[in-house]
Every structure is written in structure tokens, then in C-alpha cells.
Nucleic acid binder design. Structure first.
Lengths: 118, 118
DNA sequence: CCCGTACTACGATGCCTATCGTACGAGACG
DNA sequence: CGTCTCGTACGATAGGCATCGTAGTACGGG
């Protein structure tokens, strides 16, 4: 066990390795409005954000579920920091696997938000 | 009723208008392996292909279902031509709504197929 | 050590969906 | 007309999933 792992009480979270990330899973993860919103905010911020930072119109249970889907599909990276769980986009890995995909989706989401939201 | 509509026995199929196409629905449609495969073949061919051209490892009922999901999400255009039902990518509409998105997904799919398929 | 905050785990529920089989409709062709 | 092919419609089924509520765990601070 690494020092880092011991430092957060061994509460490491399972992430798919780079080679395990599947395009279909990524697209499915991004096809949910809640999750797409989360990803957009993460991309806009550029840094790590805690789960509680997001004010989604669902319960915390459901929020936990969505973050898990995003993590298990390889879209985000999650790590505990104290009681908080920090979330960051796996932009480097995604860009490596699927160049331009994330940016296209983000641009498409922004466009649609502009078009629909006013 | 137009002449064209009468010519094919009024078997016109409902398609979403450009403004009705939703990014989430498009991503969801593309997140299924069967449907992604269909879209890849359509993009590779560049022209219209009949449903029966595709040799999917599912029954015809299921194939019909997948084509309907693709059509109703706005990814493909379907039109009857005799007994055959021709399918074509709505590349113009998608590129207009979400520039670069389709190409990114297709490139990502090709990359993954290369990586996994050998 | 106790408490509050942050997040999880688990079970329930209702909806969506991928799949199939069978029966049917529409056009082409002899 | 009869028949063949192509694709649809409908019902069934099984699994997935978004959602909730409640109860519980982990960590930090007084």
C-alpha cells in the first residue's frame, strides 16, 4: 500500500485503465442530461470539484449514482480528500484515446444550451 | 399529399425536424454497439443503404428497432424505395447542429476498432 | 469523545430498452 | 393471381437504469 493510499484510509476508488475505456460506455455516460451537465461544469472549471459543489435536482443518492457511472465509464477521476470526494475530468486520457471527441461533445452541448436556453 | 408521397403508397416515416434533434438522444443512439456499427457503415459507404444490407447478429425485429431509434434521434434518414427501406446519415443536419461531432465519434470508433480488433 | 458534514450502501420501484417470435402488409416478379 | 422478399407491428420477457428513502460509514473539528 502506498503512502498516499494509507493517507486517505484506503478509500481508493476503482477506475478503468486507459485501455479499458470503451467509446460506447463514454457515449452512454454522456447521454444523460444530469451527467452531461456535470461534465460541462467540470470542463468549465478545469479543476477538481467536490460532489457537493453540484446542485443537481435529484437526491444525493442519485447524484452518487451518476458520479459512479461517469467514473466507471472513464470520463471522470474521483479521489477522496478528507470527507470530500473530488471529481476531475480525465481529459488527458480521453484526448489520448479519442482525440477531439470530448471537445466536440462539449461544443455541441454549449451550442444546444445556447439554442434552447436563450 | 405530394406526388412522391403517393408514389410510395404514403409510407412516409416520421423524422425529427432539425430543431427537434437533441444531443442527448444522439449520444444515446450512438452508445449502442449495433447502432454505432450501422452508423459507421453508413458513413463509410457515403450513400444510402437498405436495411437488409446490414448483417447484424440479431433478428430482423431487433434490427427494425435499432433503425427506428437512429431515425427518431435524428441520426439517419429513412425512405421507402419499393420494398426496400433506404437508410442515409443525416450528416448535413448533424454537422449543422453539432459541427465536428459526428466526425469525432466516427474517428473514435475507427480508432477503437483498430485498437481492439487488431 | 461526540457531533456534524459528506458521501455510501442497500433495497424498492417504475420505466426504458434490447431481444425474440409470430403474424402481418406492401411491393416486385413470374 | 400466387409467391417471394423486405420490412412492420405487437406482445412477451428479461435485464438495465434513474430515482428515491433510510440507514450507515468516514473524516474533521470542537
Amino acid at each position: 500500500m502506498t503512502t498516499a493510499a494509507r493517507a486517505n484510509g484506503s478509500r481508493d476508488l476503482p477506475h478503468p485503465a486507459l485501455e479499458e475505456i470503451r467509446l460506447e460506455s463514454v457515449l452512454h455516460a454522456l447521454s444523460d442530461p444530469m451527467r452531461l451537465q456535470v461534465v460541462r461544469e467540470l470542463a468549465a472549471d478545469g479543476d477538481e470539484l467536490s460532489c457537493s459543489h453540484f446542485d443537481l435536482p435529484v437526491t444525493k443518492s442519485t447524484t452518487t449514482h451518476h458520479f459512479r457511472v461517469l467514473r466507471e465509464s472513464g470520463v471522470i477521476r474521483q479521489v477522496y480528500r478528507g470527507t470530500a470526494k473530488m471529481n476531475g475530468l480525465r481529459r488527458d486520457d480521453l484526448d489520448d484515446l479519442f482525440p477531439g471527441l470530448l471537445d466536440s461533445v462539449l461544443a455541441a452541448a454549449a451550442r444546444q444550451a445556447d439554442r434552447l436556453g436563450g
